[in-house]
Write a protein that binds this DNA or RNA. Structure first.
Lengths: 340, 340
DNA sequence: CTGTTAGCGCGTTCAA
DNA sequence: TTGAACGCGCTAACAG
């Protein structure tokens, strides 16, 4: 008998019914103390463990959260997954993991897998070029809630957790203005991303407050690849009103931008200054880090997203239809990168 | 009817039996073409998806791999998990994730959870101070295979994937010797770790080849915390035969060691030189990186571990008892960190 | 207090 | 070519 023991076996050995065993194991109130003891003792002796797959099946609940991220090896997301796992664990949930590699097709396929695994809910940071959201909509029919974070789709009724990039951007631009920069460029990310739009907003607002005119030429986009960033840099540096400072979409992009600038014989922090958004916790160890970085608190975002999802899952039992959508906004914060 | 459709429903609507539907859906050979078509059509219309939890339960197989790592946010492990996820996905497996935070108790608890989830197999890099291996042994009874990687327990019959740190250490010490260093210190990790022992071996062998006597004072251990590393540095720097070069357990520890040295007014790369082991892919962006680093290929280790596990799972169906244990050794490799 | 029964969704005999 | 029946392990409603 190499198979794990079942309540059925216990019942047989004790000559009692299966359901009695089940109750005894669950400390059901209406059960004889003596039988309860006998059952629990034998269970321990046999090293009995309930078969979760049976329970999952029967309860229609798996206590598993699906998590889909673009790249696990990126510092931002690995911090996030760390926060997610910790929080899930705290609430007795497990984490089923998938990475989309920023590929819409793969993302779709993973959502499918997760659905088939009957995860109780999903936490997703979408692939950067996902344009079709059908695979998310579909989950509503199955009553599988989603909490998006950081990279959020442009959909009306969703739950999400995000950092307010507008405020961070305002802080960043203000910082540069106070340091007497007047021509400030921006290398933004894909337009589709809400976070990109927020950066634009922040940029414009900060400039307006200083009564500086908005020069659209100073605003370029990168697809986040090295090549895209180089093209963006090229376009900024070829302007007649050349920027003396550039706000860059994130630290990875900034590293590429810095490299390009150095390649073009520009002296970092003298000829040109960079400010960035921190997807990279180690940027303060870097040789030529951006002067400052807008911190986005990935661990906390992961935490919050998970807490939100867990709360949602708790509620879904009570109310048949939850109509309120969670929008959790964390404040981003400009941090100076003093190179010690 | 908000519940997902089942074969039972399909059967009823088509006035045929459940088993016919099941067969039709599986392209069973002995099934009428017409019925098959009708079933598959209706299944598509209803958006039918098999309930995996039912199948898992029934098949006693979940197509899920459990992965337990110390810290998801550490670059080394986040690369590894990336390789694991990619490979698992390729083989149609899902990944259930847990992080031990280098805490034995938590590791134990996660193993328990994974077992209850009936994962088909486990991939583990153990917590740095795990000394009791009962929770691993226990899994053998349940026929859940484990493949360890990088951080391997000191147990006789196990599957594992690791980098050969001895060869890397020899390369590192040789490198220093060739650069005319003669007093070479080493800050090692916890003695329990196999990887620590290998470093010692490599160090001794390399020194021997140069006919240099082995000074045990030059070999100290850190528990990998900042404080532990500082104590280790202090002890090395207080020696009368002060080292001109130090081989450090990994890049994180090296960062702390460098910082300590700078604090003591030592000029990095002049008064003292560091060589390290690369747990940190970004070390080449660092202001004062170790001169060189032994690369351990975390992504590849993750890949290999997963492939090994998947192969194991395939075999377990054929042979009742697999008696051979996989020991996959990847070569580590010294990489120069030229700071551009 | 305890036993009997049904059912969760699916695959798989065994019969027809 | 198809259907009926069973079992996977467990919970829960219903009877005593």
């Amino acid at each position: 008998m190499s198979n794990p023991p079942t309540i059925k076996e216990i019942a047989k050995k004790l000559n009692i019914s299966i359901s009695t065993v089940s109750r005894a194991l669950h400390d059901h109130p209406s059960i004889g103390l003596r039988t309860k003891m006998r059952v629990q003792q034998l269970a321990k002796d046999l090293n009995y463990e309930p078969n979760q797959t049976a329970i999952f099946f029967q309860q229609r609940k798996t206590f598993t959260l699906g998590v889909i991220l673009p790249e696990l090896s990126e510092a931002f997301f690995s911090s996030a997954i760390s926060g997610i796992e910790d929080t899930a664990n705290k609430h007795k949930y497990s984490v089923l993991l998938g990475q989309s590699h920023d590929n819409e097709e793969r993302e779709k396929q993973i959502v499918e897998t997760m659905k088939n695994h009957r995860v109780d809910g999903l936490i997703i940071s979408i692939a950067k070029n996902t344009v079709n959201y059908d695979h998310f909509e579909m989950l509503k029919k199955y009553n599988i809630p989603i909490v998006f974070f950081d990279r959020i789709p442009n959909l009306p009724n969703i739950h999400y957790v995000a950092c307010d990039m507008e405020s961070g951007t305002i802080q960043a631009v203000n910082f540069l203005l106070k340091n007497n920069h007047r021509i400030i460029g921006m290398i933004n990310g894909p337009e589709k991303l809400f976070a990109s739009q927020q950066r634009v907003e922040g940029y414009i607002k900060a400039m307006k407050k200083y009564r500086l005119k908005f020069d659209p030429n100073l605003m370029v986009a990168s697809d986040l690849t090295r090549e895209g960033t180089e093209t963006a840099m090229q376009s900024l540096l070829s302007l007649r009103r050349k920027p003396t400072a550039i706000v860059v979409f994130n630290d990875y992009v900034a590293l590429d931008a810095v490299q390009y600038a150095r390649h073009k014989k520009l002296r970092i922090n003298k000829d040109i200054v960079f400010v960035s958004y921190s997807n990279l916790p180690l940027s303060h160890y870097t040789a030529f880090p951006p002067l400052a970085s807008v911190e986005q608190f990935p661990y906390q975002q992961g935490q919050k997203a998970t807490e939100t999802l867990v709360e949602l899952l708790g509620k879904s039992n009570e109310q048949p239809e939850a109509t309120t959508y969670y929008k959790v906004i964390l404040e981003s914060q400009l941090m100076l990168n003093q190179n010690k």
